[in-house]
Design a protein around this nucleic acid. Structure first.
Lengths: 214, 214
DNA sequence: GTCTATAAGCCGATAGAC
DNA sequence: GTCTATCGGCTTATAGAC
């Protein structure tokens, strides 16, 4: 059973995600969050103590999905399968958690002032692991020698853009919201650029072990 | 000769770019801008009337370079040349105007509340022209049928990420600042993904006219 | 646990001296 | 044209009734 407490916290978190994504931390008023949640403002402080705390909880909610998106790199698989799964995961996050994604992007853009050292470390460790994987594929001759750092930056950017710059995408495409087929086209375009760009041919040999980066 | 007026306006604009890029519009204090410019706060208001006005001028300063970056699409050229030049222009903007780039990105992320209808129209018209070009290349069999919208979104994202998410890039690469060779590697990676991804072979035939999109 | 009513402080903006 | 000194509004946060 969900208590009133849990329900209200959830309502506030959801409202806060949208407001912070729309306006940014500083420009967001706690009174607007309360209004959007349908609760009086002091409730926000009662449950979350401060505006900054609330913001940090929203931020935290995207860290786990973001780390989980790298799962394909932690399992055995051919580069074409791993990268395809990774790109699809990242696109799915942009689509399913657009508000938290934007909050995260905004946080990073401003130098990650609210991100804890632990969170930074986790995200970084995963990034380095992924880069190590890509490098090992290059060393094994499974793909062309494309700089793993820049390849990863391009994948991040291209997939996140569907959440972060949705306004631009709506304006250019003329669609208020992208539908299933749009997201499918986006994923296929990025997958194509990456696989062909890295000269990765469809899984020809079996890769039995996930890569172990130092 | 540069008057004191011009010099001071320039100092304030430069300081404002950095502050707005670092903290965002709402979180930036005009007193901090004044301090960074080495001038008393009322000077900021004397020259720019309001914080919002000052912000709009910073924003405007990036529009022209952004439109100019699309120049390769307005001249005749083989897809491989046009796209290579375009990607290099976009990367150059990220490198040379990192603050204004970030301000623009932040503006777009929050739904472009300060962008004028005219600016939106110009940027959109250029985007549509570029998309029309790419489509015509596909129709002429000069490249594989990669969705022009999504291709462009990927190029924008991959090139802008070097300005917008510089913190992340510094953290992952372990370098406080990227140097010439890093930017060169970035450009080459993106160019490679795009050209190979679209199956564009190096200029084989001469293209004598720029494309005319409707 | 919930909400009304209020305090406290910050920051954009300016009046007015020089 | 320039700057000191100050106002006024707005927003976070809370005290205290229910």
């Amino acid at each position: 059973m969900t208590s009133i407490r849990e329900r209200n916290k959830e309502l506030i978190l959801r409202a806060a995600s949208e407001e912070f994504a729309d306006k940014g931390f500083a420009a967001t008023k706690t009174s607007d969050i309360a209004a959007k949640a349908g609760l009086p403002k002091p409730n926000v402080y009662y449950y979350f103590k401060s505006k900054e705390n609330l913001y940090r909880e929203v931020l935290e909610s995207i860290i786990e999905p973001l780390l989980a998106a790298s799962a394909p790199f932690n399992q055995p698989g051919h580069p074409s399968e791993v990268l395809t799964a990774y790109i699809r995961s990242k696109i799915r996050i942009s689509r399913e958690l657009p508000h938290a994604s934007k909050v995260f992007a905004s946080e990073i853009m401003h130098g990650a002032p609210h991100l804890s050292a632990e969170q930074t470390k986790q995200l970084n460790a995963q990034a380095r692991h992924n880069i190590g994987c890509i490098q090992s594929w290059i060393d094994q001759g499974l793909m062309a020698p494309v700089d793993p750092h820049h390849l990863l930056f391009s994948i991040w950017a291209a997939t996140q853009t569907y959440a972060d710059f949705d306004w631009q995408i709506s304006t250019v495409t003329g669609k208020a919201r992208l539908d299933d087929s749009d997201y499918e086209a986006a994923a296929q375009t990025i997958i194509r650029l990456v696989l062909k760009g890295c000269e990765i041919s469809p899984a020809a040999m079996t890769v039995k072990e996930p890569c172990h980066s130092l």
